[in-house]
Design a protein around this nucleic acid. Structure first.
Ligand SMILES: [Mn+2]
Ligand SMILES: [Mn+2]
Ligand SMILES: [Zn+2]
Ligand SMILES: [Zn+2]
Lengths: 147, 147
DNA sequence: CCCTCAGATGCAACAACTTGCAAGAGCGAG
DNA sequence: CTCGCTCTTGCAAGTTGTTGCATCTGAGGG
């Protein structure tokens, strides 16, 4: 099955109609295999189909996010980032000083969610966190500089 | 000391100049004692000083956030929320279904940050989280409805 | 095939910020 | 008190994302 056919099938299962705009957005994200801004998705979609409007892309990104096919995340800087969710669940650590973005496995976050469930009966929905802070390199660097 | 004088002193300590625009923004947030949108801050500031421009309020909110005098948080819905940080540190649980916002004490979150520090050497900066999920009432309700 | 109609789209207006630039105003030095 | 430097501010334009509405189209039923 081609990637496009897989996307079409995925759309149907999620209760969407199969349209070329949605397929193009999905293919852009699947092919990138990385975080993309809405602007960048718009650019890629329009390379193949210049008539597609910006609002359709924004609406499609929102719909795919609601169907949990993609993540939508705000890193501290720049635009909102979208990512195809086929890899294992993961999160990110974002250094506020140097800007580096690390990947974080799900385990620690699952533990946090369990705490919230146990202590507050709240079923947290943590799909793709971006945790701000200071990375190891930067905290070492400032120690040295501080001396 | 009046609240205004306290605010002025706080500004000086944070290395800002004491201006009426900054004082008005601070007083609006301190007096509200709750989360306010930028639009709402603008409205309140302009009741006293109609000449203050929107961009000044936005810039002031950004500056106060950078100085850690206020928190800036995105709840899942509506505008970004600002809050004066004088209460003890706290976070929130936001139900994606019914919209209710609970307050969450710092303890569980401190544990999470410690995990990140221990396992990744990352010094997380979690000032005022908004954790999305499903509240106890809503998960009970859907169980019942599901039968 | 053809109809129907709810969901999808394009377009333009709107909303929520953000930024470049020139003018204004704290505040420390003298 | 005055001067000067630097931080602040107002204004207008720009960016990013949202929404109302008329039109269009995918997909199931006949
Ligand atoms: Mn990711
Ligand atoms: Mn709060
Ligand atoms: Zn760093
Ligand atoms: Zn709820």
């Amino acid at each position: 099955m081609t990637s496009r056919e897989e996307s079409a099938e995925t759309l149907r299962r999620a209760g969407h109609r199969v349209t070329s705009a949605k397929l193009l957005v999905m293919e852009a994200l699947r092919h990138a295999g990385d975080h993309l801004s809405a602007t960048s998705v718009i650019y890629q979609v329009r390379r193949d189909a210049p008539h597609v409007s910006e609002s359709t892309v924004y609406r499609t990104l929102g719909a795919l996010r609601d169907s949990r096919l993609i993540s939508e995340t705000t890193f501290g800087h720049g635009e909102v980032a979208y990512e195809w969710l086929e890899k294992r669940p993961h999160h990110h650590l974002v250094c506020s000083q140097c800007g580096v973005v690390y990947e974080l496995s799900d385990e620690v976050v699952i533990g946090f969610a369990k705490q919230l469930s146990d202590t507050h009966g709240f079923d947290a929905d943590l799909q793709h966190l971006a945790v701000p802070g200071i990375c190891l390199d930067c905290s070492r660097g400032s120690e040295v500089a501080g001396k």
